[in-house]
Design a binder for these strands. Structure first.
Lengths: 204, 204
DNA sequence: GTCTATAATTCGATAGAC
DNA sequence: GTCTATCGAATTATAGAC
């Protein structure tokens, strides 16, 4: 049952890391929740650290793939693509917002890990970049900047969720309602920025 | 030298917490950096946990006060206020982005701490709320929603900075340039949302 | 592959002298 | 207030039997 054990550890590890963060997470808790012996964690993953990055990679894999799909989609027009991105990422990050903050914390401490987990979804000269230039009527608008902006607008409130909910005195229902508004508005906001050719070229 | 010692511990603690996060931070490292004896940390702050929240409170104090000032400012018009908020918070959070992520991590784990550190800057029926309603020509636009949106747009890219820089392949200079663009654009984006009366009332 | 037992280390906190 | 010395607990990782 080797494969099954490895999978059980991964699932439990993710849960414990989400709740406690990397440093406060205990391998014993992970083993307990996975219903396996503690020693099996080191047997299958060598160390707590490698287990953590395995969890991150497991988590980012599908997200990374979807991002590539959006970029390489030749058929849809610019606004449709924006709508899909907004919908997909609002849902995904909202559902996994515990994981985001833990991941960002560790990436901040070990930026070199990015290379290892292979998250570099934006490929220059992609279909997305062509759409941006076409929609703007100019190739001076930086597609990377547009993408960064979209991600920031989608993820921003999710990541600072505790602050937002405190300042705005929102319960979860109200927060979700706000995110629903944003999900619909963000494509319009982005499209407007591009249309009015806000010069966002970052190579200045 | 009691007061001086306490201050030295606070400064060192903030630095170590920023670098390591709460759980990985070691009281011994803090004492070493503050150049005081380890036992003095417990003497002055009782515990590592209380020391941490003292650091957070120290950090949020001036920010919280500024937020109140913006809200209670009767003189400036809506767009001027938006501009000031954008400038102030972009600078502040950019300069302290290490602290944000650490703070958000712990607040996520202990949301009840919000009450203790007294961060509840938004007071209903403030001058800011009146300005929003006046500018929108309606009191259906939710001022809290507007404020949340502004904060999310400002803080979003800062908090997910490692992701943005990786995806966009930006160095620090390019990232700062992007933030400078945003600092100028965010007031316009917010004003447009309010002007077109995007119905963002959260009590639905 | 899975287990027990334990090594080796390190942590936060405190007792008690000064 | 500040120090030394140390306690007690808890951690990751591994050696070795099965």
């Amino acid at each position: 049952m080797a494969q099954e054990t490895k999978e059980k550890i991964l699932v439990a590890a993710r849960h414990v890391f989400e709740q406690k963060g990397y440093d406060a997470a205990r391998t014993r808790d992970i083993a307990l929740e996975a219903n396996v012996n503690v020693a099996l964690i080191n047997y299958h993953f060598q160390s707590k650290e490698q287990l953590f990055w395995a969890v991150v990679q497991d988590f980012l894999g599908p997200i990374n793939q979807s991002l590539r799909d959006f970029f390489n989609d030749e058929k849809s027009d610019f606004e449709t693509t924006l709508g899909r991105i907004s919908n997909y990422y609002t849902d995904t990050w909202l559902r996994n917002y515990q994981m985001i903050i833990v991941m960002l914390t560790e990436l901040r401490k070990s930026p070199e890990k990015f290379a290892e987990i292979n998250i570099r979804p934006f490929t220059p000269s992609s279909a997305f970049e062509k759409k941006v230039h076409e929609f703007a009527g100019s190739d001076k608008v930086d597609a990377v900047q547009v993408m960064s902006n979209a991600l920031a607008m989608i993820m921003g409130p999710i990541v600072i969720r505790p602050l937002i909910q405190c300042i705005g005195d929102m319960d979860d229902k109200q927060f979700n309602y706000m995110m629903d508004i944003r999900r619909k508005m963000i494509p319009e906001w982005i499209a407007n920025m591009v249309k009015y050719q806000v010069d966002t070229n970052r190579n200045k």
